[in-house]
């Protein structure tokens, strides 16, 4: 059974759309027709499937469309063409500490982030101690986050995230955080998650980690799928290509 199904997904961004000012709107209403020239196709007909219990990596160089793809799969934005279907409860970690605020204490940030991730108050109270324990910042939990070292902040953010217990986990380049011990703990957690038969989709540039955690890989380049298959084979091809002179 497929848990994630992407069929012919297209996503186009308009280059000026980041900062739309009133005069741009006026220009497009009256002047018309500058739409296409500013179009940037981030994804051009992506199709792939992830089966239940599978662990899939998305690789590719910067700007290949990896993060856009995960945003679409997560439902943060809609594809312009094509369709995405997901079965089961999804948790997405696209950026660590998105909901963290430096003026709030560690404790307050844990509650806020858990609420954002979709936990109930009861669930959050239940796992609060585990989160604090995992993060290893227990002594500072009632201090404002801005007094934390950057490593501590990241560990706290990750600890909230890693205690998520969804059926599908989508992760964008956030697993490589903290010191070696902490990374080992995180990887153990992901392996437990996989052993429980859950589905995992991630983006990373860390080959070693991906080889360890994933079965399959999808290689994206300029918004197109170049290759899709066993992770070792895809990496071999990917690295062979990267070594070629342009």
């Amino acid at each position: 059974m497929n848990v994630i199904t992407c069929e012919n997904v297209w996503k186009t961004f308009h280059r000026r759309s980041g900062q739309k000012l009133f005069r741009d709107h006026l220009a497009s209403w009256f002047g018309g027709g500058d739409g296409e020239s500013h179009a940037f196709h981030a994804l051009k007909g992506i199709s792939f499937q992830v089966a239940n219990g599978e662990s899939v990596a998305v690789i590719g160089s910067n700007g290949a469309g990896k993060s856009t793809l995960l945003s679409i799969v997560t439902g943060l934005t809609q594809p312009d063409k094509g369709s995405v279907q997901i079965q089961g409860r999804v948790a997405a970690l696209l950026e660590l500490g998105s909901g963290f605020h430096p003026d709030l204490t560690g404790r307050e940030n844990i509650f806020l982030n858990a609420a954002l991730l979709g936990f109930s108050e009861k669930q959050t109270r239940g796992m609060f101690d585990a989160i604090v324990e995992f993060s290893g910042v227990k002594d500072f939990i009632d201090e404002p986050l801005r007094t934390y070292s950057s490593g501590m902040g990241v560990r706290l953010a990750f600890s909230v995230a890693v205690n998520v217990d969804p059926e599908v986990l989508i992760v964008d380049e956030v697993l490589a955080v903290g010191d070696q011990d902490f990374q080992a703990k995180c990887h153990d957690r992901i392996r437990d998650f996989r052993r429980a038969g859950k589905t995992f989709l991630c983006v990373s540039h860390s080959k070693q980690m991906l080889l360890e955690l994933c079965d399959r890989a999808v290689w994206l380049d300029h918004g197109e799928v170049v290759m899709c298959g066993k992770i070792a084979n895809v990496f071999e091809a990917y690295e062979g290509r990267a070594a070629l002179p342009k």
Binding site: R89, D103, L112, F119, S120
Partner: peptide, 25 residues
């Protein structure tokens, strides 16, 4: 997609606003 608890989320977001606004005054 998001199947969380609205009340808990709303409460935490409002608390965040209060705390951020008044804590440093």
């Amino acid at each position: 997609m998001w199947r969380g608890e609205y009340r808990f989320l709303l409460k935490n977001l409002i608390l965040k606003d209060f705390r951020v606004r008044y804590r440093n005054m």
